[in-house]
């Protein structure tokens, strides 16, 4: 019981992952479960199970996340083997990154001005190009 408490205390202790590598014999630890719903889908986090090794973790994952045919593939990853970056100074720096996104280029008015100078008219919908101006990109969803 004390060992369990220590284990969980360590686990919850920020920035101090449980000792990586092979765990000592006979210790239950959390494994994160990822599942793929159908071919071509991304693996998505489903939840986690408590197991002493990968083999049992997969058995438990199958019982909890695949028993009604809702998954075609499961991954289990020992939680201690997951390394996290959540430093917002690095991930969300307070800098204007709009030049990296298609939405950062708004040229409707400039295009109209250019057409005016050239004496041309707006092309039809068939001529739609691939710059996706104004649309949200995959990464922004």
């Amino acid at each position: 019981m004390t060992d369990d408490l220590d284990q969980i205390a360590r686990m919850l202790d920020e920035g101090a992952p449980v000792t990586p590598g092979e765990p000592p014999a006979g210790v239950l630890e959390p494994w994160e479960v990822f599942r793929q719903e159908k071919d071509g889908d991304a693996m998505r986090h489903g939840g986690n199970v408590l197991a002493p090794d990968a083999e049992l973790a997969l058995h438990y994952a199958r019982e909890l996340f695949g028993r009604r045919g809702e998954s075609i593939r499961l991954w289990v990853v020992r939680r201690a083997d997951i390394h996290v970056l959540e430093d917002l100074d690095l991930l969300q720096p307070p800098l204007d990154r709009s030049f990296k996104k298609p939405g950062g280029y708004v040229m409707r008015d400039k295009l109209a001005a250019a057409r005016g100078r050239a004496g041309t008219s707006k092309p039809g919908a068939r001529a739609a190009s691939h710059d996706g101006t104004g649309r949200r990109s995959e990464g922004e969803r």
């Binding site: 408490l5 969980i8 205390a9 919850l12 959390p30 986690n48």
Partner: peptide, 9 residues
């Protein structure tokens, strides 16, 4: 599992 991660075995 959710409860265990909050600290109670």
């Amino acid at each position: 599992r959710v409860a265990e991660d909050l600290g109670k075995p």
